[in-house]
Computed example of a mutant assay.
Amino acid sequence: MDKPIIVINPRSHQGTAFKRWLSIKQGLIHHLPDGFEEAVIENDKTLDEILGVRIAKSSELIIIVAGGDGSINYLINYLIKYHKSHLQKLAIGGIGLGSSNDFHKPALKIIKGIPLMIDLEKPWVKHDIGVAKYVGENGISLEKYFVINASIGVTAQANWNFNNPSALLKFFKSNSSSLAIFYTAISTILKHKNITVQIEYNDEKFESELSNLNLLKIPFISGNFRYPQSVPSDNGFFGLNFSHHMGTLDLIKLMFDLGKGVFDVDEKKISDYTDRLKVTSKESFVLEFDGETDKCHSVEIEIVPKAINLLAK
């Protein structure tokens, strides 16, 4: 097997990722004792320029992404678009240089506060991925893949706000990720309005006033917010958690509950499993996947079982 290649996204974490990378680079020798190659995404250098030839020629290849959840999503979408036939000879690992780093949770290995998803002693882990098909606001049909989770409602809107920050939020993001995430959650909840949607999953089809919907392959959704639901990596199902008809106080309680890993089902909350979901609305809504965001009126999401290999945490 070739040496693992570490792909570094220096733009992660408000452009501080490369400095964070340098702070832990020497410490990686304990986790990658046979060494590694490194490549930096810079000067408009594409992933294909970095990885294309290596993937085609290697019999097995470990690719470790040093960046945030968005960097992981970027790699997954690139691999499926250009190297789908090679996926089973690849394994994906991660070094969490981003703001939330949900892909790396729960973090079992940490260097200087930075979580690692790098364990070469354990077998590769099979992992399902989601594919979201929708028409963007520009009228173009899109197909996006995700490995962590997807959302609609207040979580998605919070991610949109986080990705398009005000001056105050930029300050928080530069100084404290946890404070930035908490501020974004509170400010989004205070402005939130429920969305009238039609939902289809399993054998259910109904209309509802959607407050929040999380579709999970990893139960962490941002910072300390997480669901208690068990979601095996390769069972062919998403964890579906749906909150509806909630007011501001309900959403604030939901936020504090999720901060403790609590989601108690009641008349306003549904928890289930599904391998497909369709959400349609007359209103435009934000769709979030692995922290990336877009807007649409309708989305169909399906699972692709055991599509990729991950390094053990």
Score class of each variant (00 low, 15 high):
201 Y>R: 00
108 L>N: 12
96 G>I: 12
305 P>W: 03
53 V>L: 12
20 R>W: 05
56 A>Y: 06
261 G>L: 09
271 S>Y: 02
104 H>I: 12
84 K>E: 13
98 G>C: 12
303 I>T: 02
62 I>C: 15
264 D>R: 11
20 R>F: 08
106 P>C: 09
88 Q>Y: 10
150 A>H: 00
250 D>A: 08
139 G>Q: 03
224 N>G: 10
126 K>F: 12
271 S>E: 08
293 T>G: 07
168 L>E: 14
184 T>F: 00
107 A>C: 15
221 I>V: 15
241 N>S: 14
279 V>R: 04
75 L>G: 07
118 I>R: 07
262 V>M: 06
104 H>W: 08
30 H>L: 13
30 H>D: 15
145 Y>L: 02
298 S>L: 01
172 F>H: 06
205 K>M: 11
197 V>D: 04
50 I>D: 04
12 S>P: 03
236 G>Q: 02
80 I>R: 00
217 K>E: 04
301 I>D: 08
31 H>R: 06
310 L>F: 05
294 D>L: 06
235 N>R: 05
39 A>F: 00
130 G>S: 03
19 K>T: 08
67 G>Y: 01
17 A>C: 04
137 E>I: 15
10 P>E: 07
48 D>G: 02
290 D>M: 05
278 K>S: 15
227 Y>G: 00
197 V>Y: 02
75 L>D: 10
146 F>Q: 04
127 H>P: 03
157 Q>N: 15
244 H>F: 10
267 E>V: 12
81 K>R: 13
49 E>Y: 09
187 S>W: 10
176 S>K: 04
144 K>R: 11
26 Q>W: 07
